[in-house]
Design a protein around this nucleic acid. Structure first.
Lengths: 332, 332
DNA sequence: CGGCGGCCATACCCCGTCGGTATCGCGCTG
DNA sequence: CAGCGCGATACCGACGGGGTATGGCCGCCG
């Protein structure tokens, strides 16, 4: 028994005529008769009573009809399910992320987009640090990691893509002596007091800043630790100290605070997506595409993120184009 | 897409190896590869990741697998449903019956057998008289009628089969003068008082008896009406009168009552099944087969019922052999 | 009442395709 | 590095799905 038999049977049962059914199926009547005969032989019982004036369903045929319809519907459902899974419209994705990914607002936006437009995708979110994510990826406990920077051992089996990069600029109180100067070097700040992100909140960023300062010849004096960027800016505004903040923040000018670029400071706030290199996953591709779009919308400058991978392509921000396979569809 | 593709896909997905799956399917590996490739083209997405070391399911494949299994199961279910319907193991039957059919105990026995052995059959029971049944059959409101005798207009489009025939004998009190006589004619009973079934309970039987008496030259004097045979016998035993009762009752001898055959009385208690001539119905055949078996078990004499139709065949009483079509089953 | 037309079955043919054999390409492995 | 295991590719034969032509049956109508 094949689906063809069921399709033919349903057509004949609906038309109650071999001739009309054959026309509807775009085949000739004799082959249709033969297929139905084969089906009846296979089922083991006649399904139609042939009268010279059309045909009628037998008891077996009447019982068979709804089941045959169900079978055909189930077959189509199977096909659609596979297609949707291939296009990443359904499935499951386990995402590891550092806390900073939520603070930046990028991850919440992506999640909101998925809940809104792709509700059939099950997302599992697991907060963990970079090292844990690398291990979880290796052990296939997560499918995607979101980390603050590319790990030192940029492993060969991992694909990394920095989707968001925001250079840090200096925030100073408007009435601060440095407010008037045009150009800084890092060393000029040796005597200042800083508002700094606590290490536990963003270890990579914290360490990067400290390391750059030490390279410039001083160890920064920490006046106050602050976990959120807006808090940090408020403290700067209040004169507690100066701070390094993402450039994107500088666009929302706040009274009492001035922003100054430090040439060759080179520390960036980053968000990098990382996943198992050779594993194809339509859902992951969807996620990354969305992530790129959301992140780009929040990027401070027009230039795109400089991650390795295919991060350079321009795409409409939201919604992202679905990843499509190039295979042509045949009939049915 | 055909069921073949799904069967092959499931095999490969379960074995995670084209070679092993091909062996399991009893085909060579290259055709299997081609079928899977065709399936993937049809679905519109790759279902397997081919590694040189076996294969893995893609996300689409993982989503497709359970749906494919469901489709195959549904197809088998469809087939079995049709088979069962063809053998009358499932379906619906609307049965019209006269009240006497239940009093005789035959119909309840058939119903009990169906509830016990064929619970998947839905039986609709509608009590109506012979004329109503004929009309209901014509209008296809019932599929089978159970009546007390063949209707006067033994219509050409109806098939009738008398499944039960029980000649009436005379029941007299043991101490009654008639008890000693060997041979009777009906006319000998002209002066007696009778216990008779009320007309509303069995109109045909009632009228038959009255008519025979009038032919014999008298109109019977009714001492008492009684609706059940056992009640009738009790009344005879108590000396209320004499009565015509089914011969089968005479086997259960009751103290105080003697039974005598009246030559050429010729009135029978009958139960006749009737249905639309040219309509095939496995459930109806089942029902009639069972009916025959149950009725025969209650028949008084060894001789079979003399109905027109195929009533003469001997069959094991219960359970009846299922009507089987001679079509051979092919593979799968 | 006989010819006609509609309907399905049968007979026969062609070619698409399913399944078979032979072979290749490619990693992995001893 | 040769061997091997696995899937893909190439090619072939034959089975069967679909085509046309035709027959048998029955209801209809002139």
């Amino acid at each position: 028994m094949e689906l063809r038999h069921l399709r033919y049977f349903v057509a004949v049962a609906e038309e109650l005529s071999f001739g009309r059914a054959a026309r509807r199926l775009h085949i000739a009547q004799p082959p249709l008769s033969r297929q139905i005969r084969d089906l009846e032989r296979d089922v083991g019982a006649p399904l139609f009573d042939r009268g010279s004036r059309g045909v009628t369903l037998t008891a077996a045929g009447r019982a068979f009809l709804p089941e045959a319809r169900l079978t055909l519907a189930q077959a189509e459902r199977a096909q659609r399910t596979a297609q949707r899974a291939a296009q990443g419209e359904t499935g499951r994705l386990r995402v590891g992320f550092v806390e900073a990914a939520t603070h930046s607002g990028i991850l919440p936006d992506v999640l909101g987009f998925f809940r809104m437009h792709l509700p059939a995708i099950g997302l599992s979110l697991l907060e963990m640090d970079s090292a844990q994510q690398a291990e979880a990826l290796r052990e296939s406990r997560i499918d995607l990691g979101l980390i603050g920077s590319i790990p030192p051992d940029a492993e060969r089996w991992l694909h990394t893509e920095t989707v968001y990069a925001d250079p840090l600029v200096l925030a100073v109180p408007e009435d601060h002596p440095l407010g008037g100067r045009r150009r800084f070097t890092l060393a000029d700040l040796a005597a200042e007091s800083f508002v700094l992100v606590p290490r536990y909140a963003s270890p990579v960023l914290h360490d990067d800043i400290i390391a750059r300062c030490r390279e410039a010849g001083f160890s920064p004096r920490i006046a106050q630790e602050a976990a959120g960027w807006h808090t940090t800016v408020s403290l700067v505004s209040a004169g507690v100290g100066i701070a390094f903040v993402p450039q994107s923040l500088a666009r929302l000018t706040r009274t009492g605070v001035a922003y100054r670029t430090i040439r060759d400071f080179g520390v960036e706030l980053q968000l990098t997506a990382v996943w198992r290199q050779r594993e194809k996953s339509p859902v992951r591709e969807r996620f990354v595409t969305t992530l790129r779009a959301v992140a780009r919308a929040r990027m401070p400058a027009a230039r795109s993120a400089r991650g390795e991978g295919s991060a350079g392509r321009r795409q409409p921000p939201v919604p992202p184009a679905p990843p499509r396979t190039a295979l042509p569809r045949t009939r049915r």
